[in-house]
């Protein structure tokens, strides 16, 4: 039991627990924070897999930017209380869904553990990594040479997303809000 294994086990447990807490939370703010914990643990796993750059990006972009955006939205909508979601449904009603998800995980595990991936020599310890694997230099070199076009296209995607987000979230002055009540009265 070396240090690597200890770190792996701890961060794996934290990642799974954080994710579980996220989905069972009723308070959205707490869910976001749980997700953030899970992400931090995942970043550790990334670094263990020699993805130094991506681990950093995950923390900065995901935990730092995206989740903060979630928090902003939650605050904007003032969603502290959860009563508008109605009474919580029982575990029994969701039993089928739990079972299905469990089956899915079991299938994945079976695939990974069985001889399904024999050709890819997945079973066994990690082999030796080449020099500079996963550093900023190596990823950037690939990103700006071989994958230049996809990278540039990503910028267009983000631009479209920005425009779309602005357009959708904008308050439309021409159309009066809540249509339900008005329709009901007429």
């Amino acid at each position: 039991m070396n240090l690597d294994a200890v770190i792996f086990i701890i961060s794996a447990i934290v990642a799974v627990l954080g994710a579980s807490m996220m989905i069972f939370q009723r308070n959205p703010v707490m869910a976001v924070l749980s997700f953030m914990v899970s992400l931090l643990a995942q970043a550790v796993l990334y670094i263990q897999l020699d993805a130094l750059f991506l681990g950093a990006v995950l923390i900065i972009v995901y935990a730092g930017a995206v989740l903060v955006l979630f928090l902003f939205v939650i605050m904007l909508l003032n969603l502290r209380t959860t009563k508008e979601l109605g009474p919580s449904s029982s575990l029994m009603r969701h039993l089928g869904k739990y079972f299905l998800s469990f089956l899915l995980i079991m299938e994945f595990v079976f695939i990974i553990k069985s001889s399904f991936f024999k050709g890819a020599s997945l079973v066994g310890v990690m082999n030796m990594k080449p020099e500079g694997f996963g550093t900023v230099t190596s990823v950037a070199t690939l990103l700006f040479t071989k994958y230049l076009y996809p990278f540039e296209l990503t910028s267009i995607l983000i631009l479209v997303a920005i425009v779309g987000a602005v357009v959708m979230a904008r308050k439309d002055k021409n159309i009066d809000r809540p249509t339900e009540n008005k329709l009901g009265k007429n």
Partner: peptide
């Protein structure tokens, strides 16, 4: 640690996300 351990963690996270 074997790679498959990491992949299993990924699978479990995916299952939780699905749920």
């Amino acid at each position: 640690i074997s790679i498959s351990s990491y992949v299993i963690v990924a699978a479990v996270l995916f299952g939780i996300g699905t749920l």
